[in-house]
Simulated scan of single mutants.
Amino acid sequence: MQLTSPIGVFDSGYGGLTVLREIVKKLPQYDYLYLGDNARAPYGPRSFDTVYQYTLECVQWFFSQGCELVVLACNTASAKALRTIQQKDLPRIDPSKRVLGVIRPTTEIIGNYSQTQEVGILGTSGTVQSGSYPIEIEKFFPDLKVYQEACPMWVPLVENNEYDKPGADYFIRQHIDQLMGQSGQIDTVLLACTHYPLLIDKIRKTLPPGTQIVSQGNIVADSLADYLQRHPGMERKISRGAGRVFYTTDSTADFDNHAAVFFGEPVHSLHLDLSKG
C-alpha cells in the first residue's frame, strides 16, 4: 500500500505500537506509517549522541516517505533526540515539517493524577539519566515531587516474550521496591516506556493498593488530536485513507509475531535497510 502523506510513528522497537494503537482508535481516518528500528534496539542504554543519530536517520526516512508530521513514540528518543532535532535539524531540513514526542504531553497532565503531589517514574536508563521528566514536570507542576527508577531489564523481558512469565516477577518487584522505597507518599506511577503496558498486570499486583498507574497511549492520542485541531494547516496535509503500513529494520517474521501483541491485531511488516538510504 502506497501512502501519500501519512503520520509517521517511530519507536526503537515494538513499544510504540501501544501508542499507535490508541492513536488509531482516536483518529482512525488518517494514514499511518510505523517504523521500528529493531535491528538497533534497545535505545535505552545507548549514548545521547548515538540515540540522536539513529533517531534523526529514521526521521529523515519518514520525511522521504511523504510524512509531514512524525511522532516519536519512544521515551528514550524523545528524551535524548527530540529537542535537538526540533531546534537544529528541522529548520535546516524543512521548517514546515514537525516532530513531536511523548514526554511533553505526559508532563502537562501527570500532576492532575496525584493527591499527595508525589509521583514515581519508571523508565529506561536513558530516559531516567536524561532528567527529562523532572525538568518538564517542574514547568507545569513546580510543587510536584518526582522520584525515578531505571528498569534496564524490563524492555528485554517484553521483547523476548517473558513479560507474562514468573521470571519477570523478580525484576518487577526489585525496581518497584526501589522506587517506592524513595518515598511512602508516592500515589501515582508513570510507565515512562511504551513497552511497559504489557507488564501492567504484574506492576499493579506489586504496587501498594490504590496506587494510580499512568500509561501514555491515551495521553499521546488525545494530545495529537488536540495538536491537529489547533494546527489545521498541518491537519489538511495528512492523507485520509485509514491506511497502516509497518516497517522494521530487522526480521519481518519476528516483528509481525511480537507486534500483534503490542498492536492488538495482526501486523504484516516490510523490511527497511537504512544503510541503503
Rank of each mutant, 00 (worst) to 15 (best):
Q2R: 14
Q2S: 11
L3P: 10
L3R: 11
P6S: 03
V9C: 00
S12M: 08
Y14P: 10
G15H: 08
L17N: 02
V19W: 13
L20T: 04
E22D: 14
I23D: 03
K25Y: 08
L27C: 14
G36E: 09
N38L: 14
R40V: 14
R40L: 14
G44Q: 14
R46E: 13
F48E: 14
T50A: 11
V51R: 05
V51L: 11
V51W: 10
Y52C: 05
Y52G: 02
Q53H: 10
Y54T: 02
L56Y: 03
Q60Y: 08
Q65K: 15
C67D: 10
C67G: 11
A73M: 03
C74P: 13
A77L: 13
S78G: 08
S78Y: 01
A79C: 03
A81H: 01
L82M: 10
R83G: 00
I85R: 01
I93W: 07
D94A: 15
S96E: 15
K97F: 06
R98M: 15
V99P: 04
G111R: 00
Q115V: 11
Q117L: 01
Q117I: 00
V119N: 05
L122C: 09
S132K: 09
Y133G: 08
P134V: 04
I135L: 05
E136I: 00
F140S: 04
P142A: 02
Q148R: 00
V155H: 09
P156W: 02
L157I: 07
E159Q: 06
E159H: 01
N160K: 13
D169I: 10
Y170Q: 03
R173F: 02
Q174K: 07
D177M: 09
L179Q: 00
M180F: 15
G181W: 02
G184N: 15
Q185V: 07
T188Q: 00
T188H: 02
L191F: 09
A192N: 03
T194Y: 10
Y196N: 12
P197S: 10
L198F: 10
L198W: 04
I203L: 07
K205T: 12
T211N: 00
Q212W: 07
S215C: 04
N218H: 13
N218V: 13
I219Y: 00
L228A: 12
R230D: 15
H231P: 15
E235F: 13
E235Q: 15
S239D: 03
A242T: 10
V245C: 02
Y247I: 06
Y247K: 09
D250P: 06
S251A: 09
T252C: 11
D256Y: 06
A259L: 13
V261S: 09
E265G: 01
V267T: 02
V267Q: 04
V267F: 03
S269D: 12
H271F: 15
H271K: 11
D273P: 05
S275D: 14
